[in-house]
Design a binder for these strands. Structure first.
Lengths: 225, 225
DNA sequence: TGCCGTGTTAATGTTACTTTAATATTAATA
DNA sequence: TATTAATATTAAAGTAACATTAACACGGCA
């Protein structure tokens, strides 16, 4: 499962919203938009975005007000808040605003740059939980190199097979239903058939041997060490 | 990656700020400006500039006061602090000020000269971290000469190819995503497409041989020793 | 000025991974 | 052992990811 970052975008210009949404989604973000800054806070509470991208100049509430409100919320205050500013607006005003370490992006927006920039900002905040390498029985499962060692023999697995084995081997003996596996390897919003899991299990068994993953009929699969 | 130096500029004249900002940015600096000397210190704490360029004569706090404050901060005291002085101000006053090894620049400013001058000053302070040469398997990667030796055979690589190989070979076996590579070789604020990495990998493989960089589909590339 | 080397992009080709669907096999149980 | 449900197996279709090539832009330099 590739972590899909959620971005909340607020701008009163519907065209800009459209452009941003289109481009970010094409780059694998999960995008929610609003054209009313009064809604930003409620929306943020609801969807818990990984980043808020907010126009500075908006009717009713400006970006600074929204930012302050967000930063006073226990739940939301750790979400990076990025300002969108028109080129001729006062950048210094943004810079002077006590943002913690917030950032700002100037319009007009360069789509290619935007995704990269946001990813960088998110990564700075959300320190990816480092998933540990595993040592289970005769197997060593090494995420750094995407290689599984059976005793000393290196076996290279493609992504899905690797992640599936990683989940199973992470809790040896525990049975995972196909639904569990799909949720954890494919993610909660990807819908593929359950038989797909069977096929991947087949591939893994071919590569690491038949004796390490057992089937519990009517339940699912488990890894045995 | 070319290190992009951050300059913090303080001057009460907005026109001068504009000119300086424009010219420094054109020369590849990352520029933050303020027209309030009372803000300099806070801003510096926030953005950690590589150099502070500060007008001497400013309302509220003059440059000397700001400089003193900065030099008393554990975090900031190693940042070079450069004074901007009007031609008819007392240079001797600046020279007499106990600056450590600070510098000053006289207005009116010659844009072309400015960038060069600042670069020189920064380099004097910021001793570039010395990256070590690598010996990995049959390869020797020599930063001094930008040459890769495969056994004894010297292979000359252009900059980007060299840096890319250097990153990969620096952690043999570890998989680097294209994003990782872009961040580390191109830097966090340069936006080129991911396919660019593929092309460079191609060039490197052509030169050092096909068997040393492996592709992990869906993940990235790794160097094997 | 024109050429060469480097870096980037875009277009196209190719590979191999993923998913599905069809069929076979196995296990439970009556 | 016949029936059924569940899983295994396989091949084929679909797709995503990567490889390759060519074209262009740009700067340095003869």
């Amino acid at each position: 499962m590739i972590k899909k970052y959620k971005i909340l975008v607020a701008d009163d210009d519907l065209d800009i919203l459209e452009i941003i949404k289109f481009n970010l989604e094409r780059n694998g973000f999960d995008v929610t938009v609003t054209n009313k800054s009064t809604e930003t806070y409620e929306l943020a509470l609801k969807i818990k975005p990984d980043l808020i991208l907010h126009d500075v100049m908006m009717p009713e509430m400006d970006g600074f007000q929204v930012c302050r409100k967000v930063k006073h919320s226990e739940v939301l205050k750790n979400i990076p808040f990025v300002f969108l500013t028109a080129r001729n607006e006062e950048h210094s005003e943004v810079q002077g605003f006590d943002l913690g370490a917030e950032d700002y992006i100037a319009k007009p927006i360069k789509p290619a740059a935007l995704s990269t920039r946001l990813k960088t900002i998110i990564k700075r905040y959300v320190k990816e939980e480092e998933l540990p390498n595993l040592n289970v029985g005769i197997f060593k499962i090494d995420r750094d190199s995407y290689v599984v060692y059976k005793n000393e023999e290196p076996i290279s697995l493609p992504k899905k097979e690797f992640e599936l084995l990683y989940i199973l081997a992470g809790s040896p003996g525990k049975v995972f239903s196909r639904d569990d596996v799909l949720a954890r390897v494919w993610g909660n919003d990807v819908y593929v058939g359950e038989r797909t899991v069977d096929v991947h299990i087949r591939k893994i068994r071919e590569k690491i041997g038949e004796d390490f993953i057992t089937t519990i009929k009517g339940v699912g699969y488990k890894f045995i060490a």
